[in-house]
Amino acid sequence: MSRAPGVPTPDELETRITELRAAVRRAMATGDRGTARELRAELRAAERAWDDAVLGDDAHERGGRRASPPVRERAHQALTLLGAPAAPKLVSSVYAAFFPGEIPGARLSSLRRDEERSFRAAPYTRPYYLCAALTADALAPARGLLAVSTWPLEQRIVGPLSLRTDFLTAAIRLAEHTAGLGTPSPETRRLLRRFAYAIPGAMTGTAGTVDPAALAEGARAELDVHRETDRRHRESAARRARDRLHDAERLFGRRPRPVRGIAAKGKRATKGKTDR
């Protein structure tokens, strides 16, 4: 196959890639992010050209996606099984353990925002929305939790004890669901082990195996300890929410009060994310 003049050979591309890599690293090392960004774009382009020249079709994603329900439907299935608000990570582990296929984590993180947009544009046009859990004190959206709009408001309130009671509730429901299934899959076993490890008395079997009945029993015993206090928090918060919030707020939480521009700017500057 003859090569059109001016199209670089794989060797030339290889050299170019090596040079660009060194240049990007230098730019990053000297803190010159702008240059690094431009060089990185050039680098990716060169890599793509190399891919096309050398790998051909191999470079592009192989095979079509298997038809599977939309993400919101999958998340709804997992949440319904859990019966309590949950973080995206748990939602996707539950889906992977009990349903065919999986939910890519990145898709879940934007889900709540999309649902809110849809609700605000045309309220109650869908049978359910994936919405927020609300903090008991401020009735604001609880960080990183997904809930289902058709649940009673109390179920979506997060007081100081609620993360624990929700965790225990989920443990009981997953254990019971597993008991009715026959031989659990490795994913299911792994998930149950994670719960059992964190619940007193739930780890009874030999190392690495979890007895769903023991897990449910352990979780129930601890849940009895917290239930009453937690219920009181939830009910009083839910009453306040019904009194004070309009529909969208009730589902997606109270908006933050407007803040002065200065205070909001650079507010994460001291964030210790680079501590380790």
Binding site: A140, P160, H226, P256, R257, V259, K267
Partner: peptide
Amino acid sequence: DVPEVAYDDLEVVAGDEGRE
């Protein structure tokens, strides 16, 4: 003790991350 499970998230206050 088992009853001690309260978890308060102080990162966000009423959806606001203002420092004060």
